[in-house]
Design a protein around this nucleic acid. Sequence first.
DNA 1: CTGTTAGCGCTTTCAC
DNA 2: GTGAAAGCGCTAACAG
Lengths: 342, 342
Amino acid sequence: MAKLARVDPSVVSRIINDDTALLIKDETRKRVLEAIKELNYRPNANARSLRKRKTMMLGMVIPDFLNPVYGEIIRGAELQASTEGYHLMVCSINKDSKCNYLSLLREGRIDGLMVASSEFEDSSISELEKENMPFILVNRLTLSMHDYVIADDTYGAKLAVNHLIDLGHTQIGHLSGPLFTGTGTERFQGYRAALKESGIDFFPSYLHETGYTVESGYEGMMKLLELPDPPTAVFAANVLSSIGAIQAIKVKGLTVPDDISVVGVHDVFFASMIDPALTTVKMPLFEMGIEAVKSLIKKLNGEQTGVSVRIPGAELIVRKSTSVPPTKSIGGYYERTGKASK
Amino acid sequence: MAKLARVDPSVVSRIINDDTALLIKDETRKRVLEAIKELNYRPNANARSLRKRKTMMLGMVIPDFLNPVYGEIIRGAELQASTEGYHLMVCSINKDSKCNYLSLLREGRIDGLMVASSEFEDSSISELEKENMPFILVNRLTLSMHDYVIADDTYGAKLAVNHLIDLGHTQIGHLSGPLFTGTGTERFQGYRAALKESGIDFFPSYLHETGYTVESGYEGMMKLLELPDPPTAVFAANVLSSIGAIQAIKVKGLTVPDDISVVGVHDVFFASMIDPALTTVKMPLFEMGIEAVKSLIKKLNGEQTGVSVRIPGAELIVRKSTSVPPTKSIGGYYERTGKASK
DNA sequence: CTGTTAGCGCTTTCAC
DNA sequence: GTGAAAGCGCTAACAG
């Protein structure tokens, strides 16, 4: 122990926590500091957490470490956490590894939890709520309102759909996210709003509810392609589903964007590398991670009761997967009338 | 407390840790179990860790959460950790957020550390070693031998290069990883060995040392393309650098694979989605995560002293970025002689 | 300015 | 079979 500096442990404690209330003789402080350096002493975090009832650890639940959307959020969260002197513990929740986030909280391993998984069931959330656990939702909502940090998904969706409309599309499909999720419904609402503002009717069979995965995007797009008069453009609520959509279009022997244009949400780093380079809406994911940590810490400190943040700043990144609509219908049934018809 | 079950805390402890040495009356056990259920009681992890000098937490250091290679490793590690009753704490180490892995260990927040970052300096590792900290290297090596879990990178590289040779290439460039890393040197050695086995001379200017990033792959490829007689095929030591290489080739107005073939290492989920779909060597990353946790736990339990594992099973995944060499040299200087020349 | 004391919530040894 | 007591390493209140 640093008691080899010939002082009481409490003095060491005061120095380490630089307790400004009590003054410590320079000579003593120096002696202790030297002993600390020599022994590479670091106070035991468990003892400290036990005493202070605070671990300085934050938890975050995501669906999958391979999903680049969450990678970006984690980056922001990790940065902000370390800035504020906290550690971050991320775990994914899926069938295999059942990260027991609730135990993490109950056992006092973490001070607060960020729920950033859309796969996370509402029932689990109400359990957190029932036990009055300190948590915050990230990039998602629930029916029962909670503290949350989200982006402006409605605006982002409008950006995407207006881009398609500006190119001349009027037959615009939507591969929505799960419509029981906040991001899914908001993006869907943005889609409808954009159509309405341009006087384009909403056509229910052009809507397909999918998950945020490549597979479900593929399947959803297949359904749209089987329509007698398929859309000339598709707004996919996610990058992964947009990639699945492109695969489906290729499999059907059609070309993106010549036959069908595709826009996705989330400008992940490989969006520019796929074929064709994907037009996307860039959402402020990094900022979301930062804000999530800020808000959670505020909540922990009781500085704020309802910490609900909506981060502005979605941005359209135009690449090669969108272009003007083809002049003839895909099925060859009739000539397109184009934007002039509206 | 569960002492509302009218028993001593020590009894609760025995029941929770199902201490088989001491038998407990069925009636008491039932009463305690009911109280636990009712209160949703979970023992405080900090108190427990303090007492037992064990946290059941494992740490892992990676360079970046956006790098899908590590995502795969984390997945495996998380699964195995939860299987063995441990929690996993991953943090990335970069200029911004300086996850202090050493403090994590010294403060007793984690029982052991997995170092899976090639960016992690050797000096930091010797510091870990000097303080006799329980750690293990994952997917990397150092000069001073340590416990490690790696894949067969030499074999993986041979797989890639032999594929190119089989297609008829003799002018094969290599965008190596950093040659001070184990993966970098092993893949380079596999490249040389494959060339040698086919009687192809190693041509030093065809070797370019790059980092494991898109940018460095781009730059390295540009250098190769500026050669008077550039290679007809390139083996990139990483997915990201292979993507950078493809970008460079496109920028120069050339086509993959018609003008130049490209093989990369690591079959990440978007390898099939880029343009052209990437031929890769799939390394056993998920298994690496699993083995890393197994080995670290063995080391912690003192079951094994030198835990060094090499995981077999690299696999070639052929897609669209490789084909037979062009019949004419790119620069147009002379006719290719092909494999027959050797 | 520094030492003494008590206690955070648990586990373990010993006593009954 | 269960309770009592001590102590893990720290911090906070109080004494001196």
